[in-house]
């Protein structure tokens, strides 16, 4: 599975467009991380726990998108975008979407 965020797949030609695929995750922070983050809010600096959480949910959203693409018989996804929205206080959605295509 090749994933790019430009319109094409470099070095390959797109033979068929299969349409939009997407994947999302909603994550929230848990209490332990909250306490650490509260401390960090005094001292400043990187919130490592949250960075991990963000990375995990990015991979998760991407994975769900890829599963969907695989299910409809694509072998690449182009024009991938990430988008975020906050659903409620303390929870946020990460959304990945792109166009499923068949290359070569």
């Amino acid at each position: 599975m090749i994933v790019t965020n430009i319109e094409t797949v470099p070095g390959k030609t797109i033979v068929k467009h299969l349409g939009l695929v997407n994947g999302n995750t909603v994550r929230s922070k848990h209490a332990g991380r909250d306490i650490m983050a509260g401390l960090k809010n005094i001292f400043g600096g990187e919130l490592k726990g949250y960075t991990e959480l963000l990375t995990e949910s990015r991979e998760e959203a991407l994975q769900r998108m890829l599963d969907q693409a695989r299910a409809i018989g694509a072998n690449a996804v182009v024009n991938v975008r990430f988008s975020t929205s906050s659903v409620a206080a303390g929870a946020a959605e990460l959304f990945a979407y792109g166009t499923a295509v068949v290359v070569e």
Binding site: G11, K40, G45, E46, T51, L54
Partner: peptide, 12 residues
């Protein structure tokens, strides 16, 4: 050949 890469960070 191309592939998607990403990096993320949370700073307080």
């Amino acid at each position: 050949e191309g592939i998607l890469v990403a990096g993320s960070v949370v700073v307080s």
